[in-house]
Simulated assay, not measured.
Amino acid sequence: MGERNGREDEAERLVGEHYADVLRYCRRHAPAGLAEDAAQETFLRFVRARSRYRERGRVRAYLVTIARNVCADMVRDRASSWAELPEALPGGGDPGEADDRRDLASALARLPRAQREALELRYGEDLTVGEVGAALGMSRFAAARALSSALEALRADLGIQGEKDREV
């Protein structure tokens, strides 16, 4: 009974620490209205597979990988497509800043989905390049190449001159 309570405590701790991150990811990728269900399913799958999980990295990266699969399953089940980024982002402040955000959102929307996902995982979810690769089912090298290509395409699309990324 002590082992069971320990596992339950660990599960509660993980949910408390990572639920907001997983839910934020699911809100962007799950079919409309199903983000909470996707987040819950993510944690259920994690708990079921916990014995197979090896502490080789951050738990959050593993949870985002599970969330990605859950959302993809939900999308397939609903036979709908992945949500595209909006053409216009809500803005306040400087109108030039709003135009810049719209331009960036449009440029991001024109990227191939794999590159857009790689950017989101790397910069939006703050995963390492290796964790991005694992989440997308590719090598670290392939993830770095996808990130580099995406950033290069964004620069070209937005007309930004700059030096190459030292570290993706």
Results as ranks from 00 to 15, higher is better:
Ala32Pro: 11
Lys164Val: 00
Glu117Gly: 06
Arg45Ala: 13
Glu36Pro: 14
Thr65Asn: 12
Gln115Lys: 08
Leu119Cys: 09
Leu34Arg: 11
Pro31Phe: 06
Ala143Asp: 05
Glu3Thr: 10
Trp82Ala: 11
Ala153His: 08
Arg101Cys: 10
Glu131His: 02
Ala67Ile: 04
Arg76Glu: 06
Asp9Trp: 08
Asp100Gly: 09
Arg102Ala: 11
Gly162Cys: 04
Gly133Ser: 09
Asp165Gln: 03
Tyr19Arg: 13
Leu147Arg: 00
Ala118Arg: 02
Arg28Cys: 13
Arg140Glu: 15
Arg48Phe: 01
Glu36Trp: 10
Ser148Asp: 13
Ile160Thr: 03
Trp82Ile: 06
Glu41Pro: 06
Asp103Pro: 05
Asp126Asn: 14
Ala72Gln: 03
Asp37Leu: 14
Ala114Met: 10
Gly133Pro: 08
Ala30Gly: 04
Leu121Ile: 08
Leu44Trp: 10
Arg122Gly: 07
Arg145Tyr: 01
Thr128Val: 02
Leu147Cys: 01
Arg110Trp: 08
Glu55Asn: 10
Gln40Asp: 12
Arg50Phe: 05
Gly33Met: 08
Tyr19Trp: 15
Ala11His: 14
Thr65Gln: 14
Glu87Tyr: 00
Val22Arg: 02
Asp9His: 12
Asp99Ser: 05
Thr65Cys: 11
Asp99Tyr: 05
Arg110Ile: 01
Ala109Arg: 15
Ala61Gln: 07
Ala156Gly: 03
Tyr62Leu: 12
Glu163Gln: 06
His18Thr: 06
Cys26Ala: 15
Arg113His: 12
Gln115Ile: 00
Tyr123Ser: 04
Arg50Thr: 04
Leu104Trp: 08
Val64Leu: 15
Tyr19Glu: 08
Ala153Lys: 00
Ala143His: 02
Val168Met: 05
Leu89Val: 15
Ala105Cys: 09
Val47Ala: 13
Ser106Met: 08
Asp21Asn: 10
Met74Leu: 15
Glu36Leu: 10
Gln161Ile: 04
His29Met: 12
Leu136Asn: 05
Gln40Lys: 15
Ala107Tyr: 04
Arg58Met: 09
Gly91Arg: 12
Glu84Ala: 12
Tyr53Gln: 12
Thr42Lys: 03
Leu154Ala: 10
Asp77Met: 13
Ala118Gly: 07
Gln161Trp: 04
Gly130Phe: 08
Leu121Lys: 05
Ile66Ser: 07
Leu154Ser: 09
Tyr19Lys: 10
Arg116Lys: 11
Leu154Asn: 04
